[in-house]
């Protein structure tokens, strides 16, 4: 039984892992600076924030919704944290806790209106994407807050038992997310709601509540991302986190999460996040201008979503071509079963 579970896990994780490996190999072959230990460490630090925000993106996507506001929430968290620590003199741990609560609260707003309020989450969080960043600008009058507090630095650059803290956060949060999704009733219900909303409702699941909670989790994790970014740069800026929501969603989708909901593996999302950050890092090493980096990221997202959407058609096309080939070979034997076609419609 345990092996079988491991099998299932592996099958969903192997693809994204191989993609990550392929991208890393390409980078290593194209520039010898990629494998320098300093560069690898940078990649590791860079991936932490994307990976943590991507947990929230994955959980929301599993319920067949989407959260576009996470990057803006990172910026809002960043300026508010810098402000209340530097200008109001709050202690860093208290301020960080407040920020996580605020993130959860704004996630609640996203979730409430897009589930109970029946405003499509794509539209509603597009609205909060603008609102949260607007609030961040409003807070500082557009200027960043520098040199916030010496207490911030160890949050990002500290170590625990010789391990860099961002690594620890990622491991702990991913382990928690995995346990939540696989081993709690709520986690199971998240998959159920995304898999078949109507059936979930008729199984007694409070669909709106489950969806709202997913957004609350995503909001809290965006705030964690905002705190880490502020600590890393010892500054708060309304410009932070631009496009982070796309990177987070792309991580989930490259990791095989279906935008239709109900399909996705949290560890695969982690490999998705690594893939994206490695691509970005490699483009930096090749001194590709940032405009082209954006274009590349956009193209990766489009392709990843396309693969998700077309998976069924693509597989059916292959089956049809294969059948045609086989029918041409032996016309004498009639084809009997249609089950092969059914097989490939399932998403791995």
């Amino acid at each position: 039984m345990r092996e079988r579970f491991a099998d299932a896990l592996r099958s969903q994780v192997v693809g994204p892992f191989l993609i990550m490996l392929a991208v890393a190999t390409a980078m290593a072959l194209s520039t010898d600076r990629f494998l320098l230990s300093q560069n690898l460490k940078n990649v590791g630090l860079q991936v932490a924030i994307v990976a943590i925000v991507a947990i929230g993106a994955t959980i929301v996507i599993l319920t067949a919704q989407i959260d576009l506001s996470s990057g803006s929430l990172v910026a809002l968290t960043s300026v508010l944290l810098a402000d209340i620590v530097k200008n109001a003199g709050l202690s860093v741990p208290l301020a960080a806790l407040l920020m996580i609560l605020m993130g959860a609260g704004l996630g609640l707003v996203n979730g409430f209106f897009s589930s109970y309020g029946r405003i499509p989450s794509f539209i509603f969080t597009l609205g909060t994407l603008a609102i949260f960043r607007g609030l961040a600008f409003q807070q500082t009058g557009g200027t960043p807050i520098f040199s916030v507090s010496p207490q911030l630095d160890p949050i990002f650059y500290g170590e625990l038992g010789g391990l860099p803290l961002p690594f620890v956060y990622v491991v702990v949060l991913y382990a928690l997310a995995w346990a939540f999704l696989i081993y709690t009733p709520r986690g199971r219900q998240i998959y159920a709601v995304g898999g078949n909303e109507s059936a979930a409702r008729l199984s007694g699941i409070n669909v709106n509540r489950v969806r709202t909670e997913a957004f609350v989790i995503a909001g809290a994790l965006s705030a964690v991302g905002g705190i880490l970014l502020t600590a890393r740069l010892d500054s708060g800026s309304p410009n932070y986190g631009q496009g982070l929501e796309l990177m987070a969603i792309a991580s989930a989708v490259i990791g095989g999460a279906s935008l239709f909901g109900g399909q996705g593996n949290i560890f695969a999302t982690l490999f998705g996040a690594f893939t994206i950050v490695i691509v970005q890092n490699g483009l930096n090493l090749h001194a590709v201008p940032s405009a082209w980096q954006n274009i590349t990221l956009g193209a990766i997202i489009a392709v990843a979503v396309g693969v998700d959407m077309w998976r069924g058609e693509f597989a059916r096309l292959l089956v049809r071509l294969w059948r045609r080939g086989r029918a041409a070979q032996d016309e004498a034997r009639p084809t009997t079963s249609t089950s092969a076609e059914d097989d490939v419609q399932s998403r791995p």
């Binding site: 009733p185 998959y191 078949n196 399932s346």
Partner: peptide
């Protein structure tokens, strides 16, 4: 309105009664 195609048989069977397979807060 009934089946979850993203689940295998067991998860489809237990979804309306997850309490019965819980140990503490976990499934």
């Amino acid at each position: 309105d009934g089946l979850f195609f993203n689940f295998e048989g067991p998860a489809n069977i237990t979804i309306a009664g997850l309490g019965a397979i819980q140990i503490g807060p976990f499934l």
